[in-house]
């Protein structure tokens, strides 16, 4: 399993393929306010990224996937800011 919930945090671990988008969305909708820890995540499918963009959970740590850390993390922050503003 690459999506696992532990208390208020949902952990993304290893490679998160397209199927995990559904799991992640279900967990985030069932537990609003949960954060997502993605430092152990080494790769994300676009569908998973789309869920993060849409549901904007707070992200904990630096993504273990360098591409996501460099290019996607700033976009997620912006999305969260826009929502806050």
């Amino acid at each position: 399993m690459s999506v696992r919930r532990d208390g208020d945090l949902i952990h993304l671990e290893g490679t998160c393929p397209v199927e995990e988008a559904e799991t992640l969305a279900a967990l985030l909708l069932a537990h609003p306010g949960s954060g997502v820890a993605w430092s152990a995540c080494t790769g994300l499918h676009t569908a998973v990224i789309q869920v993060l963009l849409r549901l904007r959970p707070s992200l904990h740590g630096t993504c273990g996937d360098p591409f996501a850390a460099r290019w996607l993390a700033p976009l997620m922050e912006r999305a969260t800011d826009t929502q806050a503003g």
Partner: peptide, 18 residues
């Protein structure tokens, strides 16, 4: 790189993740 929704996001509950 920029990512944006192609059409306005539907309500969260009706999200179609695929």
């Amino acid at each position: 790189l920029d990512l944006a929704p192609a059409t306005p996001w539907p309500p969260a509950e009706t999200i179609d993740v695929f």
